[in-house]
């Protein structure tokens, strides 16, 4: 993977300190500690949902850390002739800024962004995660949700950052409200514009083919309604395996000296049991099935903690953006 080159002695130094008792890490964290995570939603004014996320920004200097910017754009897509899928679709793409990987050639950078895109796309664009409110006109038009993530800086643990940013951006996404429009000819009369009918009245009659021809955007106080399935979007934990131990949230140096990583993306729906949305093994290291079993169980626990923390922060951000902004407006 994308990692800085380290000398053999430095790698062995890091590995030995990780596996010693008690384990020692360069920045004084314990094995299962995350660096501080900062996030802000609604940073891109033209997007339907956006977030900027940072893992490990140092508190004193105000710089450093893994930084990811994610934004969601919705586009109306044609199901019949275009790329659209009935009921909407989700497309993810990740691009890595050359500033984050100065040592990589442009080809290697493309491959890296491509590999990250594959992991995210295979997970988030899966039919089991498709939000229910992306349809506009049945079998004619639907929303295409494009989630674009940019890695602005990488100081380790980029997959966790990407999945967290994706979840936050999708949480923040507002889908514009649409109303289906159909035209009806008056009995024995010519078609007139004012005979416009709203789908809600005849939509329950499933025997007839939907005659909806177009849609309109009704005036709505807010930007739209929230994307359905907010609680289903997964978070990812990367378990870095240096046998016999594993640790979380690796820095770039630690990543370079770790032979094997297990990526687990889990979703925690409110009413159901947690489910695994993706798992990947990365790297040339060795692991046995019995170890993987234990890792999956532990991963579920860590992902649950991360999920709860992210959820709390997102709710706080919602309050900041809506309620507090409103209060300030009234005071003015």
């Amino acid at each position: 993977m994308a990692s800085i080159s380290l000398s053999k002695s430095e790698k062995s130094y890091i590995q030995t300190s990780l596996t010693s008792t008690p384990p020692i890490r360069g920045d004084g964290r314990s094995l299962l500690d995350y660096r501080p995570i900062a996030l802000e939603i609604g940073v891109v004014p033209l997007a339907n949902g956006s977030v900027r996320l940072n893992i490990g920004k140092s508190t004193h200097e105000g710089a450093g850390g893994t930084e990811v910017l994610a934004a969601v754009k919705l586009e109306v897509e044609d199901v019949v002739n275009g790329d659209g899928v009935d009921g909407g679709r989700v497309v993810c793409s990740v691009s890595c800024s050359p500033a984050a990987y100065p040592h990589l050639s442009s080809n290697a950078l493309d491959d890296l962004s491509y590999d990250m895109t594959t992991v995210l796309n295979q997970t988030l664009a899966h039919p089991s995660l498709r939000p229910s409110n992306l349809g506009i006109l049945p079998k004619k038009k639907s929303w295409g949700l494009h989630l674009d993530l940019i890695v602005l800086a990488d100081s380790g643990n980029v997959f966790d950052a990407l999945f967290m940013a994706a979840r936050a951006a999708l949480w923040d996404t507002k889908v514009p409200v649409t109303r289906v429009v159909e035209y009806q000819a008056k009995k024995g009369g010519a078609v007139r514009q004012d005979d416009m009918d709203v789908e809600q009245e005849s939509g329950l009659d499933t025997r007839q083919v939907s005659r909806a021809v177009d849609f309109e955007l009704p005036d709505y106080w807010d930007e739209g309604e929230t994307l359905a399935g907010q609680d289903r979007w997964p978070v990812c934990v990367t378990l870095n395996i240096v046998s016999p131990i594993y640790y979380l949230d690796a820095t770039l140096q630690e990543e370079a000296s770790t032979p094997l990583r297990l990526l687990l993306a889990l979703s925690f729906p409110k009413t159901e049991a947690p489910t695994l949305k993706a798992s990947r093994l990365l790297g040339p290291g060795e692991v046995e099935l019995s170890q993987i079993k234990a890792l999956v169980q532990d991963g579920e626990k860590h992902a649950g903690e991360l999920f709860a923390a992210l959820e709390a922060k997102l709710r706080e951000e919602d309050v900041r953006r809506n309620q507090k902004a409103r209060d300030r407006f009234i005071l003015r």
Partner: peptide
């Protein structure tokens, strides 16, 4: 085990 690839919705 050399590789695990999983996608979709599966309980742990």
């Amino acid at each position: 085990v050399t590789s695990v690839w999983q996608s979709g919705e599966v309980k742990p």
